[in-house]
Design a protein around this nucleic acid. Structure first.
Lengths: 122, 122
DNA sequence: CGGTATCCAACACGATACTG
DNA sequence: CAGTATCGTGTTGGATACCG
């Protein structure tokens, strides 16, 4: 079976990229717990810049994963939550992240072995 | 719940990044079907450069997902396959990719709606 | 408060050439 | 065949400053 055709990147790859992007995973994780405002999300997710959070949220909103509700008040108040599609996506991504976390020890052990073998060879 | 601590990137994030990387996903997909040689993989996965394939394979091998077996013959012959851990990882990643592919229509529809709404606002 | 615009450094990636 | 080395470029991502 040919896995990729090499010409155009398939759409699913882009979606997967959005879902598993550096901040996308963390946004999903946060929003699985409930609705958050922009700055609450920033606080919840440590180390994310305004730019990247805005960009990530826009991408996920455009893909139909995140619902954005702007209340027309001063000062502005914007709530972010997951759509039904987003909840499904988030739970799957988060499950994969959970699997990765569970197997950190095995991976770390494998790396140690790999590095040791290379050190001998040099 | 604090999703990320903002200081050091957690190890699981790196592992997840390796598993879902552009070529990592396709390598997993190919190796789920059996053992391949380096250039067979290159052919199977369209559009990957030698450099990126080598790099991806090394990363996945170091993480303990891919087994590399070099036969000491001339010309060189190297076989790549999945380890047990790799099979588990690959099947989960591939399942996620499958989910993404199934929902391409919904995402595309969401994007159309999003773009239309933004066009009106401008 | 919730963003956008701009600038800049780092790096991912690909093409090419070369090696054991 | 199976890579490594080197180089050039395009994109990513953060810091900063500013706007409605």
């Amino acid at each position: 079976m040919k896995v990729s055709d090499g010409s155009a990147v398939c759409p699913s790859r882009l979606i997967l990229e959005h879902m598993t992007s550096r901040w996308g995973v963390l946004v999903f994780a946060a929003l699985l717990e409930g609705t958050y405002r922009f700055s609450e999300l920033r606080r919840e997710i440590g180390g994310v810049s305004e730019k990247m959070l805005a960009q990530t949220l826009q991408t996920l909103e455009r893909d139909g994963f995140v619902h954005r509700e702007a209340h027309p008040v001063i000062p502005p108040h914007v709530d972010y939550s997951l759509t039904e599609l987003g909840r499904e996506a988030a739970s799957r991504v988060w499950a994969l992240a959970g699997w990765a976390e569970e197997h950190v020890p095995q991976v770390l052990a494998a790396r140690t072995g790999y590095d040791a073998a290379r050190a001998d060879a040099s």
